[in-house]
Structure formats: C-alpha cells, structure tokens
Design a binder for these strands. Structure first.
Lengths: 348, 348
DNA sequence: CTGAAAGCGCTTACAG
DNA sequence: CTGAAAGCGCTTACAG
C-alpha cells in the first residue's frame, strides 16, 4: 500500500456539498453561484464564494459536462508542425477558446481517422479545429467523419472539396499574384515555382495566383518543382529547378521554409547570388524570414486574425448548429526585403 | 429556433444503454466490455462490439471520469514557445500520453497561477507537465500550487529550488563543459558567454559547466552578456559583449536561437568572420542550427528521450502518489559543425 | 460469467 | 430568491 506524504492534503477535491455545508446553504445554491444566469442574492453569493475560496473549490467539469451536455471542450487536431508559425497558432487558439470559457484538448497522435474521431468524441468535444494531420488524405477523412457526425468543424488554413465545413485561410491566390507582380516590378520575368509535394488547397491556390498573374503579364509559364515542405525540400527543389532551367532569374516558393533552403543551396552550393542572379519570394513570413542572412521578401499571413476568425466561426457553429458552412479568407500583404532587387521605376 | 441540416444525424451520441438494447444484453455488460480487466465471454464481447460499432459508440469520458475518479487527463502547461524544439516536444508528449490511454489538455493561456490551477483542477487532471510559462516566477508559483495540492507534477527542462517536484532536464552542466572543452581543443581560450535574461536553472547550469571547465583549464574568466532568449536578443548580447571585449575569440551561447542572432550580427554588422575571428557554440541543436548558413556547432539535447522519461515519470507518480520526487538528467552530445574551427592536434 | 442497483458531482426545472 | 429532487452515463461491488 502506498502512503501519502505528510505534507500533501487529501487528494479528493472539495465538492459543492462541502462548500454548501461550510457556507450553511443548500448544494443547489452553490451550483447557482457558479452558473451565471441564475438568481442569487448578493449575501448568499458572498458566503458561498468565501467558502469556496477557503476550500479551493472548482466545479467538477466532468459532472457539469455530463449533466449539462455542454462539455466546454474543443479539440484541436494537429500533427507534424511543419509550419514554424504553428506553435504560435496553437497558443493563440488556446487563448481564444479559453476566453470563450472553453478548454482545448490536443489531438496530436492517432492511429487513423477513426481513432482521432474516437478521441474527439470521448470527451464530447463541442467542436473541432483541424489543421495539419500527418497526411492530407488523413485530414480529409477526419473532416469527413466530423461532418457526418454533425460535429461543428473549422478547417484552418486548408479546404477540402466536397466537404461542407467552415474554413479560414489566408488570401492565398491574391498572395501568389502579389508575389508575381512584385517580381515583374523588379524586372524579373523568367520565374520558377517551388512548392510542397502534398496537393493542399493552400499550395494550389498560391501557385494558381502566381501563374495567372505571370500569364496576364505575358511572361513565360513558370516551371514547377515540388518536394517535401521543409528546408531540405527547398534545397532539393531549387537544385532540380535550376538544373533543368538554368536561365531562371526568379523563384517563388509557396512556403518560407522551402525558400530558406533554396536560398542557402543557391548561395552555398550553386554559387548564385540572391537577389542579383536569382530573386526569391516566399510565403508565410515565418520569424526566420526576417533574419539578416535570409532577409526574405515574402507574403505575410496574419495568423492572429485567422485564429480569431476561426475561433469565432467555431463558436458560432456550436451555438447555432443549423448555420451553413462559410469560408473566410484573411488579407495578406507583401513584405519587401533583400531577397528581391529594388523595384524598377515603371516605364513612362 | 434552429434546425439541423438534413444530412446531419441526431447530435446525441449513443450511450451504453443504446448498445445494450441493440446487442440484447445488460448495460453493465457493455461497460465491462469496454473496461479491460473485467470478465466477459467471447460471445458477449463479440455482440457488444458489433453493436457498438454499428452505433459509433465511444464511452462518455465524462461519465467514466466522474464515476471512476480517473479522469484520464493530463495537463500540459506551456506558453511562449520560445524554444523551436517545443512544438515537437508538445507533439511527443501528446503521443506518449495517448499511449498511456490519457488525453492531453493544453493550458496555454491564463491570468495568473491560480487561474492556471483552476483550469487544471476543473477537469480533474491526474497529473501536470510544466514547461515554460510566460515568466519564471509564474512557472514557479504554478509548480508550488500543484505540489501543495498533491497533484503529480513533472517539470520539463527546468528545476525549482525548494519545490519537491520530479523533473527531467538535459545534462546541462556537462553540456556546458563539453562546449568549453571543444573550444579549448580548437585553440580558443578567450571566450564570452551569451544567455537569456531569465535566471532559469537550465541557463544557470549551462553557464556553470562552461565556466568551471574554462577555469579548470586556466583560461580567463568569460564575461557574460544576457538578453532576451531570441534571435534579436542574441544579436544584442553579441554586440554588447564584443563591444566591451573586442579580443574575444569564442562565444558560448546557452541557446541556439541566440547563437543564430549572434552569428548574423557578427557577420553582417560587425564584419567578423565565423569561425575564423570568432568561434561560436550553441546549445539545443534546433533544426535551423544545421542550416548551411549557420552550420552551428552545438550541444544536442535529446528531447525524444526527455519526453519519454518525463511521461513515464508522471505515470509512475500518478500510480503511486507516495513515490518521492526524483530528477533525471538525459545525456547530451556535442555536434561539431562549421561555426568552430577544426580541433588542433593535442600537443605531444 | 451476467444483471440489478447504487452513486460519482453536478445542473436544472419545479415548488415554495 | 432558495431548497429538494431527478437524472446525465457511466463503473463497480454485490448477488446470483
């Protein structure tokens, strides 16, 4: 048998009955004090709160959730945090949901889509935020299962065709176009594209916007190289692209992490100067994009606004399950730095 | 009034009674099937599982937690993810605890220590992992409150004097010594130290190990500059240190992020060569340390092993609350890269 | 091996 | 405004 150390108090936390006894009121009175919207006299409120504080009472969320059918829990599904902005994103979500009085359960490991759903359902999550799962098809299946269950769902930074879920993304297509226009303004027309191999909606839209803008300007169609969405993947795709098309004078990387790998490879392996020989534009504006070595021109995505929007959208869906799914695209902006040459004055 | 969309099934998930009815058995039989360690005939097991699958039944974790007094929830307290290894760390924790059959609640935003504790206690967390809170004193107070409640607690990558909690860290002192010995082997004796301003145990031990090893070799006492533990902080501290001590030929940065900022500042602002003029050693081995531009010599910390150890330690503490607090230090190793010159042959 | 039943700690109509 | 009481969906001795 184990014995508790002397200095630790009894493990069992105080219940509303303990508080009621100490305050000399009924248990239901205690419950009302802790449930906004119920009527209680100030005097009773006072006494109950004092007793609760004395006992360190916090209402048992399990009992509350079981009885009221509002679990107060939101699940965030996220694995392989391949985007360096994501840690901040998780924290921002936790903050936003805690402001809503909800608690975040992190679903970061699971055998398959069914397993993920079981974890979500076990604690009766009121809603789900889905960002990156290990593989795209896995994300898609989880989203499908949630929708089928009628579970409020928001897709963060991705969309799936045929799945009627709300989503929040950056204005990826517009961002791609901005990148193209900036390169054109800098006098670069022979551009290549580097992107992650997973065919996500995000990557598709970024590329789409870039290609359309280039075509509209009469520039040659940019060749595309795809590889893992990582520093090493960027180096690899950059090597492939310049190997096949040595005369490219610009690269658009659909993710900053890849841009950094590309830049280092260009400089350290291929001996090309950035931006003099090859200009590089990224997408995301991750912290390291601003570092002196890279000084990367990129499309800034406003994750704070995106998270805010997604958390609100999920809260709305929870409050009104009949609400139709909607999509929000948050504005992006180009941050011009040293990996692109200064724009030329426009010909008069 | 809201109406559900036609294609969404009823919101209320199946209960064990629903499963029992469909399978033609008692509710307690269903419960037993889902609770390992109870006796059930294979035949009944079969029928129950089939019925459960048909209804998409997952036992209500709230009811189970309420009744059995084992919530199955572990809280991870973590904010300001200033260490680029932490995203992976969170994911690894989620994985480890899910293997234990537990679910992770992320406590990433709170008003103060009491608020954090209330969130931990609300869902009756069986244990707590504490990593970085916004400020050091906040972490310390949360740890104190947990210990006072008798809540199983593991400190990750930090220790607090006077708080009897289990902890897992890297061998920080040994790592500091390795850094010093490597610099000495490379022929550098005039070293400076750059570290984050928060007086964490981690930073203290890393510096301590470095200084002792330098002193043991008869090298001059290294001056120390402290700043925010970030890329910019590294640049700032590097500038201050070399301004005051221009003849330094080596820098030990107690965190890789700072080392990267220092290196860029040395090269791009001060026009110093790394490693020729100044050698730089970091600590952590974050992904960007390996990037071609930085190629940072650093002390590798094995977060996979640390998380494994911490999760096991917490599980043990939950199973046996009488168990005394223990500390585990996980071995580190030096990764020699290009930010330090090649070691010289030892004088015969 | 199986079922009937108590009870975990709350919330929430329902009386008063 | 307050209290008595039912009941959320399970687990777990207790009989059989």
């Amino acid at each position: 048998m184990t014995r508790r150390r002397k200095d630790t108090p009894p493990a069992r936390p105080a219940t509303s009955y303990d508080v009621a006894r100490l305050a000399g009121v009924s248990q239901s009175a205690v419950s009302r004090v802790f449930n906004p919207g119920s009527y209680t006299s100030d005097a009773m409120r006072e006494r109950v709160l004092r007793a609760a504080a004395a006992l360190g009472f916090t209402p048992n969320g399990f009992a509350r959730g079981l009885r009221s059918d509002r679990s107060g829990i939101v699940s965030i599904v996220m694995t392989t945090l391949d985007n360096p902005n994501y840690p901040g994103v998780i924290e921002a979500f936790a903050r936003a949901f805690q402001r809503q009085g909800r608690q975040v359960a992190l679903i970061a490991a699971f055998a398959d889509a069914e397993d993920a759903l079981a974890r979500i359902v076990r604690y009766r999550s009121e809603g789900v935020v889905l960002t990156a799962a290990t593989r795209l098809d896995l994300s898609r299946r989880i989203a499908g299962l949630c929708v089928r269950r009628g579970l409020p769902l928001v897709l963060y930074n991705r969309r799936f065709r045929g799945i009627a879920a709300s989503s929040v993304t950056a204005e990826n297509e517009a961002g791609g176009a901005m990148a193209a226009q900036h390169l054109l303004a800098c006098g670069r027309r022979r551009a290549g594209i580097i992107a992650g191999s997973e065919p996500t909606s995000t990557v598709r839209h970024r590329i789409g916007g870039f290609v359309s803008a280039m075509r509209a300007a009469g520039a040659p169609a940019p060749p595309v190289a795809r590889a893992a969405q990582s520093y090493d993947g960027g180096a690899e795709a950059g090597a492939a692209l310049l190997g096949a098309h040595p005369r490219l004078d610009a690269l658009f990387c659909a993710a900053d992490v890849m841009a950094l790998g590309t830049i280092d490879h260009l400089r350290h392996r291929l001996g090309r100067r950035v931006p003099d020989d090859v200009a590089v534009v990224g997408f995301d504006d991750i912290p390291s994009a601003a570092w002196a070595t890279f000084d990367l021109t990129t499309i800034h995505t406003d994750h704070a606004a995106m998270v805010e929007q997604a958390a609100q959208s999920l809260a709305d869906a929870i409050d009104d399950p009949g609400r139709p799914a909607g999509h929000a695209a948050v504005a992006v902006r180009l941050v011009a730095r040293g990996s692109t040459p200064p724009p030329r004055p426009r010909p008069a």
